[in-house]
């Protein structure tokens, strides 16, 4: 089992009011699954993604990633886990504007301490995989939205992570480009990669093989 959570809760404190974002989520995701976390805004799907991505810690409940209890890990171990085991794709791409596509893709490998030549070769390979071989030296402001998201996908897969978490990956794209992006995710899932989509869009979630519906911080189906 790659991901296993037991009754996870997350409560935010806004001023003096406690806002429950997750109200007991128990979830299992296997290696190789292509799943979608779906729900309206405020359903807690983004919070759940942050917890699953080890960017945030749950208020209560346990979370095992690859059979390791996340609550026992310190900051540095969590950073290493995010670096090696988890890839992120964001709605707003989050590319560094001053770096070329290739340099952006290299970032996770940089933090993994990979030698320059290996990094460059791997970045080229990844960009070719998402169909941007001829755009490697371009900066983000010279790329279209779809191209930027493809760079972000290449970056997410840089260190061959166990899971890629994609938060509304088509949210900032027109529907035609969105379909292209979903096709890339589809083929990557086909190759055995574990992918978790987070979306409120039924047509996007429809690409996944399993849909997990969230409402009010709980799994409803």
């Amino acid at each position: 089992m790659l991901i296993r959570t037991d009754n996870i809760t997350k409560t935010y404190l806004t001023g003096t009011v406690e806002v429950p974002a997750l109200a007991g989520v128990t979830l299992e995701i296997d290696k190789g699954e292509y799943a979608a976390l779906m729900g309206p805004s405020g359903s807690g799907k983004s919070t759940l993604m942050h917890v699953l991505g080890c960017l945030d810690t749950p208020t209560s409940g346990r979370y095992w990633f690859n059979d390791r209890d996340i609550s026992t890990l310190d900051d540095i171990e969590l950073a290493h886990l995010r670096n090696r085991e988890i890839g992120f794709v964001f709605q707003s791409f989050n590319l560094l504007p001053r770096l070329s596509a290739q340099a952006n893709v290299q970032l996770p490998m940089l933090y993994a301490g990979m030698p320059v030549r290996e990094r460059q070769a791997r970045a080229a390979e990844l960009l070719e995989m998402v169909g941007l071989k001829d755009r490697m030296t371009h900066n983000p402001n010279e790329l279209s939205g779809g191209e930027m998201q493809r760079v972000a996908i290449a970056r997410a897969f840089a260190n061959r992570p166990s899971v890629v978490l994609a938060d509304e990956p088509t949210g900032n794209l027109d529907s035609k480009t969105g379909v292209e992006i979903m096709r890339i995710f589809g083929s990557l899932a086909e190759q055995g990669n574990t992918i978790i989509l987070v979306t409120h869009d039924q047509s996007v979630a429809g690409h996944a093989r399993r849909i997990i519906h969230l409402a009010d911080g709980k799994i409803v189906s």
Binding site: I76, A79, R82, F88, P108
Partner: peptide
């Protein structure tokens, strides 16, 4: 700030 958040998400430690 966003860059820092992103770098941390990609695996930068606090020390980095």
């Amino acid at each position: 700030t966003r860059e820092i958040g992103l770098r941390k998400a990609l695996g930068a430690t606090n020390q980095d």
